[in-house]
């Protein structure tokens, strides 16, 4: 059964109330390592949004039109990751040709995205919650925007507290994780305002 959720509500929900990073903590590795640098964070956020939107849509088609008819639901992990890897590869080539400027600003982040768990996670939620095509599209785009928002927020905060007297043992990843926890709690204040399934 497709859940009765308006696609736009789903978009808002996945940016704010059910942010994939801050409420589910998916895609942490690049979130922590790249957020050192605001400019790079922005680039990665943009790339993740682009890839998430496209892969969620294509995985929806693959799931509905190939996996379900052949009763191969147990193989969805493998199929989804193959599709994601292939799409990232194609995107990289196309962007390099069409817009060298965008390609340079995304740089090495594009290939990195293949192994970003948020991408896989969104495809799996899309399947688990039985979204239809339009809902999947908005869910994918919204999750991407949410991820983008979260990493830019964190990068900005990290830049601000860089010069603060942080205890030696907490420098780097330690204080970053604490910061993420506090941002996450703030975002949890929205929880329950919009339903996603």
């Amino acid at each position: 059964m497709t859940p009765d959720v308006h696609p736009l509500a789903l978009l808002i929900a996945s940016v704010f109330t059910n942010n994939i990073l801050l409420s589910l903590f998916l895609g942490m590795c690049s979130f922590i390592s790249i957020s050192k640098d605001l400019k790079a964070s922005n680039g990665l956020g943009m790339a993740v949004t682009l890839v998430l939107t496209i892969t969620t849509l294509i995985n929806w088609m693959v799931y509905r039109w190939i996996i379900l008819p052949f009763e191969l639901v147990y193989l969805r992990y493998i199929v989804f990751i193959i599709v994601i890897a292939a799409i990232v590869q194609v995107l990289e080539m196309v962007i390099e040709r069409v817009s060298p400027t965008l390609y340079r600003s995304l740089g090495i982040f594009l290939p990195l995205i293949t192994v970003n768990c948020a991408i896989m996670g969104v495809s799996l939620f899309m399947q688990l919650r039985n979204y239809d095509l339009l809902q999947s599209a908005f869910f994918g785009a919204g999750s991407g925007l949410g991820w983008w928002l979260a990493i830019v927020l964190l990068a900005a905060i990290r830049q601000r507290i860089e010069k603060n007297p942080i205890p030696a043992g907490l420098k780097g990843a330690g204080i970053t994780l604490i910061t993420i926890g506090i941002i996450g709690m703030a975002f949890l204040g929205f929880a329950g305002m919009l339903k996603t399934q």
């Binding site: 693959v62 190939i66 052949f70 191969l72 193989l75 193959i82």
Partner: peptide, 8 residues
């Protein structure tokens, strides 16, 4: 299963 995966 292998056929479908290979085909994809």
């Amino acid at each position: 299963a292998p056929v479908v995966i290979s085909a994809i």
